[in-house]
Write a protein that binds this DNA or RNA. Structure first.
Lengths: 235, 235
DNA sequence: ACGATCCTTCGGTGAGCACCGAACTGTCGT
DNA sequence: ACGACAGTTCGGTGCTCACCGAAGGATCGT
């Protein structure tokens, strides 16, 4: 028997626009630092500290301290699921053939989607895993780029990851995928890859959401570049 | 793209303990009057009025005016789903074998569960439908008990529904089942039946949530008493 | 050792809001 | 027509809480 106080307490965590914004930002699966989130939400660092404490206390977020940084992240794929369920009430009505459409929409999301600015879902995970051994090193809990990976990226993107970078965003970063329960590739390289995939029409967005579909050109490119075969399909 | 303000606004509706309690009460699918809810939540009628306005405005509840009464009800099965998703975070962890377990858990809920204090799901609907024509009258949108139904209950429960009752809770009441999209039996009789089913071990709770499972004894009882056959199973 | 950076703790301020009682409107029963 | 009852509107009160700036760790780079 769940008490009303429990439910109210959980809801109160999301009832503030700043905290809600923080949670939505974290929906990308990345771990953000406290000040990144403060800047993103447009509040003072001291204010963000308080919010993060409440969210961690409430079990929605987990934190990891690393030197003088405090990284926070959604606690659990179920939290992401919850946030997406809540957000789903605002998306344009799924309408038309109701249940079926909803089911195929969620299937499409599992198949492929953007996560923040990189690829996720089965597509994102497949690309990531194909890159492992082709230039991406998976050293348990983190990714790294080998020289071979660097030249592969230069060939594919015409972009050298070793170029001096402005921001401090890491080149490669693991990002937990909550439909696949595996990591996919985030970070600057993940974003560049996604940009190129979209730019070349290898994947196209389905509607206005985050779901993407692999095109025929994309299938060919994946076969040539990474030696993997995926069917685009569906809807 | 869902804005943080939307999410915060939705969450704020549930972030108050009184409103949360009202929504949980309405999880039984019944339509309550404003003063019933005020009494239930322990606040003044004027306070309840305000809360109900906000909840209706926010789309979580719908209202129906009938004479001097104002009946409110969850707007939609998806609202009930949302409330259950949120509440699920407080039930002891379903754990073990993760994803599969989650799928079977939701299947178990569809199969049989308690709804407030009576039976719901396929089990609840099957029992209700078997009782129709055996003493339960379905006069479109409401149930009523015939004399035959009364003696059936006396035989089965050793409890006479015609006894003077303390509260004002109706004897029988239809309760919309959002997995079956049919009505099942609520009210005092529904509660007594559920109590007896549990007390006799005809159904047992699965874990500590609301899901229940029909036992072998329960299958026999349903066959003898109502002439229906259901398989218990799963998990 | 030094300053820069990240984060935290601590008052203080202001707005929002949950609550009530009292007065009012509408509906029902007799 | 009358009182009883369901619900509403309207001030007024008090608490919670989001926010900031200033000051104080803690850690990093040099």
């Amino acid at each position: 028997m769940t008490s009303a106080a429990d439910l109210a307490g959980l809801a109160a965590l999301l009832a503030d626009e700043t905290r809600a914004g923080i949670c939505l930002a974290l929906l990308d699966g990345r771990a953000w630092t406290a000040s990144e989130l403060a800047a993103y939400a447009g509040v003072a660092p001291s204010t963000a500290t308080g919010h993060l404490h409440r969210l961690v206390e409430g079990g929605l977020l987990v934190q990891r301290r690393q030197g003088r940084h405090r990284y926070v992240q959604l606690a659990d794929p179920s939290v992401a699921q919850l946030l997406e369920d809540l957000s789903a009430r605002f998306e344009p009505p799924p309408d038309r053939t109701g249940g079926l459409r909803a089911a195929t929409a969620s299937a499409a999301l599992r198949r492929g989607r953007t996560c923040y600015d990189h690829l996720a879902g089965r597509l994102g995970v497949a690309v990531t895993e194909a890159m492992i051994g082709r230039g991406l090193l998976d050293n348990g809990g983190g990714f790294a780029l080998t020289p071979a990976g660097r030249s592969w990226l230069i060939d594919l993107l015409g972009w050298d990851p070793a170029w001096p970078r402005s921001g401090r965003r890491p080149l490669v970063r693991g990002c937990l995928d909550w439909t696949e329960r595996r990591e996919h590739l985030g970070g600057l390289v993940g974003a560049k890859l996604c940009e190129r995939f979209l730019g070349h029409g290898w994947v196209v967005r389905i509607g206005s959401g985050r779901a993407v579909r692999l095109t025929a050109a994309g299938q060919a490119a994946l076969r040539d570049q990474l030696g993997i075969t995926l069917d685009g399909e569906g809807v």
